[in-house]
Design a protein around this nucleic acid. Structure first.
Lengths: 194, 194
DNA sequence: CAGACTAGAACGATCGTTCGGCATGGAGAC
DNA sequence: GTCTCCATGCCGAACGATCGTTCTAGTCTG
């Protein structure tokens, strides 16, 4: 019940590709190594040749996705200069990724990584979220955001759009996220602007 | 490593009490029936006498918590008359519950119930969230909230506070949630007010 | 004494992982 | 060129551990 990964991918990437689809669809614990074997068209031995185990697959996937998202957000925010533009660029990037790579965003956003990646910090301490938090701190310091607790500001600014992403990924939204970007952004900015 | 449930509880409630603590701390899949047996001081047989199985425990817990939260929110919002007051009352109730019953809120908010409760609708379609959505619809209709897509408005109004709750439950916040209520509320209301 | 409840050994299924073997292909010896 | 050797990657049967669940026997209570 799962399309084979593209033949152009390396064996390692085939494993990651299949694991992502299954983890995002069924969850980490409901996905067995056998499922990944079936889905990828490889063998158990081959999988264990490339990864130390199931947890190592999830870990590699997590690091790769967090890293890619991080770079994406940092680049998007570097293209513009004012803080409001940066915040909107970040939200736009997040929305776009939800539409182009829903499985990846599902894995990042609603998996409880601490349940299967012991020692991993909570998702809100991961690099992309730290980056967003830092930009909020700077926005407060320069007066673009009105003075307030920085955590409250970060939650107020990005909480609405993130909530909308959750709704989209849970298939509760009937329309595309990008159509709602301007409206969601104006709400978010009204929440915290000076 | 887990305090026994109060002896005053019925056997059934002892099981639910222990299961909640373990599910919230370790997750559903990392909690075994043996763990619940140990934590509750009961026996396997006793547990299976009161519940059809592990999934039935999680289901009963979920229904009970959703129901209790629902009643709580509906009562809190019935005490006041204007829509802005209702929204704030709801957020206040949610914050209070995070502080008084963090395990319950952890189980409701960040468990992926669909992974272990097949057929269960996504959390955002559950009664408390439907209720919040309905109040937002009405607020738009009567002009208290400015005209916009209702999903965007609901996400903008409650997304910030919910995000803050996540941060609190993940122990990222150093201060108490209630201290941040007024500030978080004023951001939320600025986001959508007419 | 009947029915509700508790107890825990035992069972079958499933899972993650290990391990020994096989195919391939490039490097070095002659 | 040809043969050997070894590293690399691939394969899947088998293993041990753990889990959810069942079942029979025992205890308590009204």
């Amino acid at each position: 019940m799962l399309s084979q990964p593209p033949a152009t991918l390396s064996t390692r990437d085939k494993i990651l590709h299949t694991a992502l689809l299954l983890f995002a669809r069924d969850g980490y614990f409901s996905t067995s190594i056998q499922d990944i074997r079936r889905g990828s068209g490889l063998s158990i031995g081959s999988i264990y040749h490339h990864f130390a185990g199931k947890e190592a697959i999830a870990d590699a996937l997590y690091q790769q996705l967090i890293n890619s998202l991080s770079l994406d957000l940092e680049q998007a925010s570097a293209k513009v200069t004012s803080y409001p533009e940066r915040y909107k660029a970040i939200i736009g990037s997040l929305f776009q990724r939800c539409e182009s790579q829903p499985e990846a965003m599902r894995f990042i956003l609603h998996a409880r990584h601490q349940e299967f990646l012991p020692g991993e910090a909570p998702i809100c301490s991961a690099r992309p979220f730290e980056f967003m938090k830092k930009l909020v701190d700077e926005g407060i310091a320069c007066g673009d955001i009105r003075p307030m607790n920085a955590m409250v500001a970060a939650a107020a600014l990005f909480g609405g759009p993130i909530r909308l992403m959750h709704l989209y990924l849970d298939q509760v939204l009937e329309v595309s996220l990008m159509e709602l970007l301007d409206e969601s952004w104006s709400c978010a900015w009204n929440a915290v602007k000076a």
